[in-house]
Each structure stands twice: as C-alpha cells, then as structure tokens.
Design a protein around this nucleic acid. Structure first.
Lengths: 395, 395
DNA sequence: CTATTATGTTTGGCAAGTTAACAAATTAGC
DNA sequence: GCTAATTTGTTAACTTGCCAAACATAATAG
C-alpha cells in the first residue's frame, strides 16, 4: 500500500510530531521545517482542523520583536483532541496518568493494589479509573488507547510470562484486558515504558542510542535506538537486570546467582547499609531519602553502601557501553534521591574501563518521578497513533 | 521530500528487493506480492528495463505443471546492471569479492598484505584490484560502490580508532580512500559486515533479531534488528568480544582481563589444546581442522579444549540472549570446522541458563566461508543503493 | 473449436504535492 | 501618513504516480 495516501499519512505524522516537539508554529514555518510548500501545509491543516486535532492560536503577544512581513498564525495541537491513559501495575500500588494530544500529563492518580491481588482485581481498577475519567465531559469521548506496564517479563502479544514481585505467571493479560476494556490496550515492561517516557518528553534525548536503567525494587532496563525501543524477538529484550556481574551472589528470581539485579536495587542498598538482609516488603520507599541524608552528613556506612552498589552498577555499565555504544545512559527509578552521588562516583571509572576509543556516553538522570512508568505507557500509546516512526514500508 | 516521487522510490526498492529475494517473477505475481496493480508494475518495469536494472526472461521450461491462463513473462534483475566490490583488510591478507545486482559473488580474489603494511599499501592494493576488474568490459562501468572491512574499532565516519591486530590506530581511512578511489566507500567492522552478509544471502534469516558472533583470530560480533545493523552512536556498537565473562584471564588488547575475546579465539583454542601459550602469528589457520580431526577421533585433549572454549562462549551467549531476546544466534568465522561440535555442546546449557520464560534462540552456523567479510561488505553497499530499508522519513 | 482463465497493456480518473500568481498583513523609509 | 518591501496564507493550473476498468493476448479444458 505505497500510494498517495501513504505520502499523506507520513506528512501528517511529520506535521503533528513537529508541533508536539517544537510547540505551535505558523504554516509557513511548518512548510520550511517539513520541506513542503505552504500550499500543501494549508491543505493538511484544514483537514486536521476539521478533525479537531489542531487549532489556530491567537498571536502570542510575548513582546518578541517581530520580523518584517505579514505575521503568521500559530498552529497548535488541540490538547483535548485525544487522550491516552497509562497504567502502572506496581507492588501494592497502581498509578494512572492521562496524557493529552500534546503528550502532557493532565491527570494522575494512585490507588492501592492489595498484596496478592490477581489480574482480575487490577483490571477492575483500570475499568473503574477509565469510567471515572469518562464521567468528566472533557475526557468522555477522547481517550483513544491504554498502555499498561508490568514489573517483569511480558511478551509483545500481551502474555505475561513472569512477574516474580507480584507472583503473577503465565497470564494472558492482553486477552483479559481486551475482553473488558473497549479501547486498544498495549502491555509493556515497566522499564521499557519508563525509558520511552523519558525520551518522549525530552525529544532531544531520544536521538541516537539511549541505554536506560530503572533502579528500584528491581533493576530493569531498556535500549532505545532512534526513538524506537529495542524489543527483541518476543518483546523480552534488554533484560539488563540479569546481566551477570559477579561469579556469585544472592539468589536471583531467575534462579541464577551473580545477576546485576541482585546487587543493584533498594533491598540490596538496605543490605549494604545495615549488613542485614530483609524481605522485600520491609524496604521502605523512604530508604533512598534516608540514605541520601546520611550520605550528605558524611556517614561512613552510607558512603560504603553507595560505593558497593556503585561498583556493581559500574561493572554492568561497562559491558552495556561496550555492547551498545550509546550516546547516553539514563538512570531512573525509585533510587532517584541517590542517583546524583552514584553517577558522580561512576562516571570516572566508566570512562577508564570501557574499550579504549569507545566514546564516553553522557550520564543522565531521569527526574520524571514516580509516574514515569504510567506516563511512559501512555506516551507509547500516543506514539503508536501520532508519532512519525515505524511506518511499515514492507506490506 | 515526502511526495509522489517517494512513493515511486519505495515501490521501486520493494520491487527490486522482491526480485532479489524470491528470484524472477512475472509482473502479475509482483503486483500481488507488492499489493500494487498490474498496471503500476508494468509502468515500473518499463522504467527499470530502460535503466538496464531488470530484464525479461524467456519462460523457464522446467517441466513444471502450468496453471490455466496466459503464462506470465518472468522479470529478473539484470545481473550485470550493477556491481559492488567488497574488501576485507585482514591479517596478512586482503580478500576481494565482487557482487552483481542479484547480490551473488561473481569474482573473488585474495592477495597478500605484508605484515606491518600501512593504510597506503592497502589502499594501493584496492586501487589495483579495482583497475584490474575494470579492465574487464563486463565490469568496466558498472561498479557502483565499495565496502571495506577492518578487524577492529572503526567509526561510522570511516575513522579507524584501533586495529590491534594490524597495529593501525587513529587513521582517517575513509578520507584516505575517498581521496584515491572514485567510488563511494563505506568502512565497516569485519564482524558487522560478516553478519550482514549472512542475513543478506539468507533473507529468511534476517527477519527479527539476530545476534552474530565471528570467532577467528579474535571474537567480534554484531546484532541485526529487522535487517538493520545495530551500529550504536558512532558505529562502534556490539563490541561483543569485550563482554566480561570472567573475573580474571589473559590480558586483552583493550587493557582489561576477563573479556570474552581472550577465551574464545584460535589462539585460546591452541592454548587449551596444548597447554602452551603462543603468539598470534604462530596459530595456524589449519588449527580448527586439526582439532576437528582429533575430536572426531575421540582425542581427550581436544575434547577438553572444546569444552573449555565452549564454557566461556556459553557464558557470553547467556548474557547476550537475555539482553537481546534474539530469534537466532549465528556463529561464523575461521573456527568454522569446529562450530558444529561447539554448538552441540552449548545448546542444552544455554536453554537452561537464560532467564526462565525467555524463548530459546535458534543456533545457526554461518557457512559462507573465508570470503564472508568481503561478501558482507559488498552486500552492505548493495543494500545501501538497492534494498528496501532505511528510507529516511524525517527529512 | 469454443469457453475459461490469467497475463499484460491502455485509457481515464483521482489524490496529493508543486509551481506560480495574488491577496493580506505587517515593517521600513521618506 | 503613504508607499515600498517583505512575508504569510490561499487559489488555480500542472505533474506524478497509483488505481479501476476495459481490452487484447495466450494459454488450458472439454
């Protein structure tokens, strides 16, 4: 199906993506940026206005010096032209984020997910949240798709293979969702979604190759190449947490020892800081803040704990840098309050230990915060429908 | 530039790729496969015939039972419509392969590259080979581009960072080539090229995600996603040889210890088999054959050597499988005669040790042989000009 | 020998972008 | 304040390339 309608499809997405990334622009400027004529842009904008996806904006009177010539009329994405719901299924909690057509969050919500709850309960909560949102006339008819993230192995067809933290296994979550929700549902690993959320909300960050690490209850990862997630054959790619970084160590949920995930997560941090092992649910969410304070106060035990965690993380990042030659490594997740000192500690040795000649990647921290997975999931749904990428030329 | 000419560009590449992959086909069949009308295909074929890229073929009288209806006239790529030269710069040797428009090798050649020779000498040999080929009227005007492979780190802009085996370093090879050769030259790491050659000559092998390992003098790798190489930010991606698979080990060319490359290569095999370390140039190319014979004869030392090498390789493949969730792992390179027993030994443990739930990749051996890098380099040039991929929709 | 079926070509139509001309809205200069 | 210059946005005529439909062609089936 490579005919004129493909050209229109491509140009439409190029136009919408430009407006999302650069903000409102007049037709003439759009024409220049997309290498189209003003005439073509006029036609496309007319069409998009009729479909309520873009709108004219009154001239912003921002005191900017105007150039000579007739001033342009800004065209902007119509924020409420479409909405996307992102859902994070987490440990004891579900988080929801609603994005508008500009991919900005317009609503967030957190609800408890009882420990031991199954998929039915989670789907019920999604249904309820969707109904609640739709009772608001603003969102009643514009929610187009849902993205759901889970903390573990999930195939791209929506089949959950294993979520050790939730004790969910072999579960056709996609099918179950499709049966109960009247919108397209996409299921994704939480780290993949968080990574995508980061590059989608920082467009300049997504060019090239980005390796993302999410350090929290576990340690997950994602790799993004030219704004596209590396999913692997079945959507299980970038299982960075199971990279082997030591000959021995605590038993991992995967059954092996030495996995990065067993050395780099909140529970491990607790272990390093207190020399006592604890069970998962006893690790407080406030742990990173507490350790950060002790660290700032020069506490020796906290310093040693960070040093130990950093050493394993470093070991993993060396391999990842050699394998992916990334432009940037982004670290996010619940460990956020401690990421600055960790990154400071890692940058130097990383530059030394990667293969000589391999350029040092930028080390960045994702500061989106606790809704990063939900926002990322919604961003993926947004991207699916409106972003310029992944147009299949083969069929 | 997304207008009707883009549609034609896409459809032309779809048509040429279909002919390359499936062989000669009549217009009606092409129309069905490309979802175009017979009328459109007629027009495109007329155009391509005029440009000498395709030609009509007399009906093959292969005794096949004919269907009812008017028989179609096969359209085939005109083999001599274009040629691409691939060059491998190796240790002591340069190999050349010329591909025609069907991406089949029509000429191969090996010449000595004196030990210690610099880039100037190598470029001189390329010039000479190109001149020799052009003295044949068949190739005089049809060679369109050159691909050159080097055994080590090279940036996508053609700057050679480090080739430890050749002692070449910090060398603007791309610029030097452009100055002396009147054709587009692309420089690529040898394992990347070999991987690409494998999937380009086995089209069904390139769908999805393929992890390629080249085991020879060194151990290099490449990852291919949907027929495209994962290059990384600077073209240095997939440095699989420097994946760390042990806490200690022989000193690697990268300055660290524990790299996969130091355990999995010809010299290491020699070491395992003889318990003596030797210098690189003393490792005979025939070593794999010799060991294979001893192995077949049940020789205990050879068996142990293969077991040792396999154990390190396995360790690397576990991480790679978890990281990339590949459809297939392909192993090639000078170790070829030993790859069958090695793969036999690895398959079982690999399935056990990857993350539970991660599908087991197919384990395949690339049997292209000694010209795999040269053929792959030429294939990359062919792909650049004629394959349906990497059409940039952003500009 | 005729009916059927499939291929390949021709003709006319449509979609979407381009070119070129023009009206509209602003600044610059006198 | 008026005119020239400049830039935006629209309109109409043109071009490209695919589609739809009709037709000529070449085979098989009975």
């Amino acid at each position: 199906m490579a005919n004129q309608s493909l050209v229109r499809h491509i140009n439409e997405r190029r136009l919408l993506s430009a407006l999302r990334v650069y903000g409102p622009l007049p037709r003439a400027e759009l024409a220049r940026r997309l290498s189209l004529t003003r005439a073509s842009v006029t036609g496309m904008v007319d069409d998009l206005v009729a479909r309520r996806l873009v709108e004219e904006r009154p001239a912003r009177d921002d005191g900017q010096r105007r150039d000579v010539g007739r001033p342009g009329i800004d065209i902007a994405l119509a924020p409420d032209g479409a909405h996307f719901l992102g859902v994070e299924i987490g440990v004891g909690v579900m988080r929801f984020a609603l994005l508008d057509l500009t991919a900005s969050p317009v609503d967030t919500e957190t609800v408890d997910l009882p420990t031991g709850a199954g998929a039915e309960a989670a789907i019920g909560l999604i249904e309820a949240r969707l109904a609640a949102l739709r009772s608001n006339p603003r969102f009643a008819k514009t929610i187009r798709a849902i993205g759901v993230t889970v903390p573990g192995l999930v195939r791209s067809d929506g089949f959950v293979i294993n979520l050790p933290i939730l004790r969910w296994q072999h579960l056709p979550l996609g099918t179950l969702l499709d049966a109960r929700i009247d919108l397209p549902c996409q299921i994704e690993n939480n780290a993949h979604a968080a990574a995508f959320g980061h590059i989608y909300s920082n467009p300049q960050a997504g060019e090239g190759v980005v390796v993302y690490l999410k350090i929290g209850t576990g340690c997950g990862g994602a790799v993004i190449v030219d704004n596209k997630l590396l999913r692997g054959a079945n959507g299980l790619g970038a299982e960075i947490g199971h990279l082997r970084v030591a000959e021995d160590g605590p038993l991992c949920s995967c059954g092996r020892r030495g996995c990065l995930e067993t050395f780099v997560n909140l529970r491990a941090l607790q272990r390093y800081a207190t020399h006592k092992d604890v069970v998962e649910r006893d690790v407080s969410i406030d742990l990173p803040n507490a350790v950060a304070e002790r660290l700032a106060a020069g506490d020796r035990e906290a310093t040693a704990a960070i040093a130990e965690l950093s050493s394993y993380l470093l070991r993993g990042l060396v391999d990842l840098t050699n394998l992916f030659n990334p432009d940037a490594i982004v670290i996010g997740g619940a460990m956020l309050p401690l990421l600055d000192p960790i990154v400071d500690r890692i940058a130097g040795p990383l530059a030394e230990q990667i293969v000589p000649g391999m350029p040092m990647p930028r080390l960045t921290i994702s500061r989106i915060g606790p809704f990063e997975c939900a926002i990322g999931a919604a961003a993926m749904a947004h991207h699916e429908e409106f972003d310029l990428t992944n147009i299949d030329l083969h069929t």
